[in-house]
Design a protein around this nucleic acid. Structure first.
Lengths: 198, 198
DNA sequence: GTTTAATTTGACGTTATTCGTACATTTATT
DNA sequence: AATAAATGTACGAATAACGTCAAATTAAAC
């Protein structure tokens, strides 16, 4: 019954995402989204109050998707190193999903509400990661004398470094960069005592 | 003396090119170009009457660059197959230089003068290519019974096919696609009598 | 150090674009 | 045939972009 409504709404979301990801928020107009989604302007306003609300929807969707992926990784039966590998891969594709153009637009222009939204999600997710790291320390998978927040910092740092062009030039592929970085990461934090047990 | 003028002008051109290539003509404003080039609006109008004239400058630059490259290839001492290989490579990087966003914007919106400019250059270059192909026929490097305009058509067709995603999926890399296409191209047009002479 | 030229700044009126809403019409659904 | 959903057009209001100007600042040249 509400099936075609979903179709229209999804068409708007899909078109908006493509345009926002490519050009950011400021450069894309509502009518542009509508004509790209083959939808009239009124239908747009039936589902979204304005452009910012639509962006809010997309951001929320994206961030909760990330969170679900993260949780399913952390709840899996993989060993800790495999989990972290997966998480790094997630961070990787998440930062690719969130295009520079989109984020830059949000932060360079006066979309304060969206900034706040992202910040809130980030904070909550980061707290969760830290909690997971503390748990990993308790079970002996991570050095006990390392500050959990520092691990979080390292994870973010790795994401940045993967994008670093100077670093990329030292390796044949981005895969190689990631491998090097994760190796470096593990030999720094993995509990040697725990490893020898395996 | 006119050295710093060049610097300012070039800064504008560089910034504009980056922005145009990413977002097209319509989405980019003059003040945006200026602030990206660290130049005031007045300086912009000192060098360019408006946005369209600036785009005209960039397009002309790009197309004449292509032409110079093409001529230096065709005037070289390479044999015919090597020349065509180079030309295909040129077409390749030219279509990458001219971003979809930029060209699409010119043709979807009312930038009629720019459309005309591009068309004129294309026509003139195409005539030149056809002339070169007729020359290649006379010197026995290309089958005499093939229509020169058809060779031009094939060259453009190869450029399109390289971009074709369906085709790309059949090969491990874009290089492999190009190799396959050029091989196909040569075995179709190369004069077997001439080859056996070598 | 003064003069001269180049560049920037801020403001301006004008034009174009975008926004959000309203209503009559058309297109689907049931 | 009746009901609901979606469209197209038009609208005033708000915003953004355009192109121009004179005055102020900075840099270069003498």
């Amino acid at each position: 019954m509400a099936n075609q409504k979903e179709t229209k709404k999804e068409a708007i979301l899909k078109a908006a995402k493509t345009l926002f990801w490519q050009h950011g928020l400021r450069r894309v107009s509502i009518v542009e989204i509508c004509s790209s989604a083959n939808v009239s302007k009124m239908t747009f306003y039936k589902y979204f109050a304005n452009k910012e609300v639509l962006a809010e929807y997309l951001i929320t969707e994206m961030l909760t998707n990330w969170h679900n992926d993260y949780r399913s990784v952390m709840n899996s039966d993989l060993d800790f190193t495999a989990k972290i590998n997966q998480v790094i891969a997630l961070e990787q594709q998440a930062s690719q999903n969130m295009s520079e153009e989109f984020l830059g637009d949000i932060y360079n222009n006066e979309f304060v509400d969206l900034q706040q939204l992202i910040t809130n999600y980030r904070d909550s997710y980061h707290a969760e990661i830290v909690k997971d790291m503390i748990e990993a320390q308790k079970s002996g998978q991570v050095r006990a004398d390392i500050k959990p927040e520092f691990i979080l910092y390292l994870l973010e740092d790795i994401s940045k470094k993967v994008m670093d062009e100077k670093l990329s030039k030292l390796y044949p592929s981005k895969q190689a960069v990631i491998l090097e970085l994760t190796n470096y990461f593990f030999y720094g934090i993995i509990n040697p005592a725990n490893e020898s047990h395996v």
